[in-house]
Design a binder for these strands. Structure first.
Lengths: 235, 235
DNA sequence: CGCCGACTTGATTAAATTCAATGTCGGTGG
DNA sequence: CCACCGACATTGAATTTAATCAAGTCGGCG
């Protein structure tokens, strides 16, 4: 396996199980035959809302946002993705056009597993299908929680939760307190389902209350517990 | 197969594929061994948020709402379920407590497939796992759309969409225009993610604009296209 | 008959969006 | 080197939306 296209479980740092962790060696090598890897620049689109899916994407390195755009130009971020995760399986499974757009947040290396190979694998490999089911179930839970939050929580609670979410996905930097991703205020707003202005105001408030700090363009969590209680997590 | 526990595809009326449509005859009979059926009265709980899942539920007849309750007592309906659909697979798959509560909207007959049989089946039967994957993917899409709607649409648009959603799930009565389910204004509000009062006001407005009518406790769609354009559906 | 739950309506309030203006920072080209 | 540009950030004020609060009505049922 070359450096561009690892499928090795040891590299999966976050809580999402890598889809291919359970595969045997020979299966991995078969899998890698069909792969095509590509590097995306910051801001580059990996797939676009309304286009047909060609395969699934395996994020090798980098960070991706998946968002839905309304006609109004309004953007809602549906999911943030880190390296080791898979991308775009939803539309493929239900055989529909992409209902969201994936954009690289920073320079990102991604491998494509073409549609036919993907289906071949899940048909032949029950473990794989099971792993995918778990990923789907996890995604569904996440999304349901966001749905409920959006209808029941204040903008402040949602922003706090968005920060916790980002910490969960991307973790901290070496200092164990700075969230390991750089986003614009607008992106944070679009995760929390609010506007840039409120996101700015709420974040400024959190800084004043010594819950967070701004380190350059990054956000440092000074009071994790404070953030948790602000976010009002129920489950 | 007794009258209580059909698993026959012909009875699945709505757009959700029944999980067991693709099973062969002998598989169906094995499946039915582990089944326990039960009838739930209106308002009765099928499973409860925070409790561990025992199996999956197959809705034989009746109607169910799945909702999450906040500590505040606030309720958000995550999904409405009709007969022929399965229930409660999410928590089972990710091996977690239920994150939502399922309540019968009307008298409802439900079969339980115990946990171990469920897992046995999806491990042995790739078709079944595939079908479940499709259901999960479809649910995920639905939920993502609701999420985006909640953050981008007005209460009026969301109520209109809720009505279309109910029509989609439950269909019309014989008159081809009355939505085949009876809900309180509060329930409609909880689907649309708003309050009882706004739901009442918006529905009254729709009636005045001759988009809908109230037939007893049911809602009749007088101007479907009007409803669609109000709902501002993008995809 | 009286109560309960659901429905309705109006008035008030709070939260967050929208609008508008200004500020900051990094890069680019003369 | 410096002026300018563009993207993003910030702040204040006005506005809008929908939630909340507060009565009062209706219909069925014990």
């Amino acid at each position: 396996m070359n450096s561009e296209g690892h499928l090795d479980c040891r590299h999966c740092k976050n809580r999402y199980k890598s889809l291919f962790c359970d595969l045997k060696e020979e299966e991995v090598s078969v899998l890698s035959l069909g792969k095509a890897c590509k590097t995306y620049k910051k801001g580059e689109e990996i797939f676009i809302q309304g286009t047909p899916p060609k395969g699934i994407f395996i994020v090798n390195s980098g960070k991706v946002k998946i968002s839905r755009l309304a006609d109004s130009g309004n953007e809602q971020i549906v999911k943030m993705v880190n390296s080791g995760e898979i991308l775009g399986y939803r539309a493929l499974l239900s055989n529909e056009l992409y209902s969201s757009t994936a954009v690289a947040i920073e320079i990102t290396s991604i491998c494509v597993l073409p549609r036919h190979l993907f289906f071949q694998f899940i048909e032949q490999n029950a473990t794989l299908a099971g792993a995918l089911l778990k990923i789907a179930a996890s995604d569904l839970k996440q999304t349901e929680r966001k749905l409920v939050d959006l209808s029941q929580k204040t903008a402040k609670e949602r922003i706090a939760e968005a920060l916790l979410y980002l910490k969960e996905i991307y973790g901290y930097e070496q200092d164990q307190s700075t969230i390991n991703i750089i986003l614009t205020r607008g992106d944070i707003a679009n995760i929390a389902g609010t506007t840039r202005e409120t996101s700015i105001r709420v974040l400024a408030g959190l800084k004043k209350d010594k819950i967070i700090d701004f380190i350059g363009k990054s956000i440092k969590v000074r009071d994790f517990q404070g953030l948790v209680s602000l976010a009002n997590i129920s489950d």
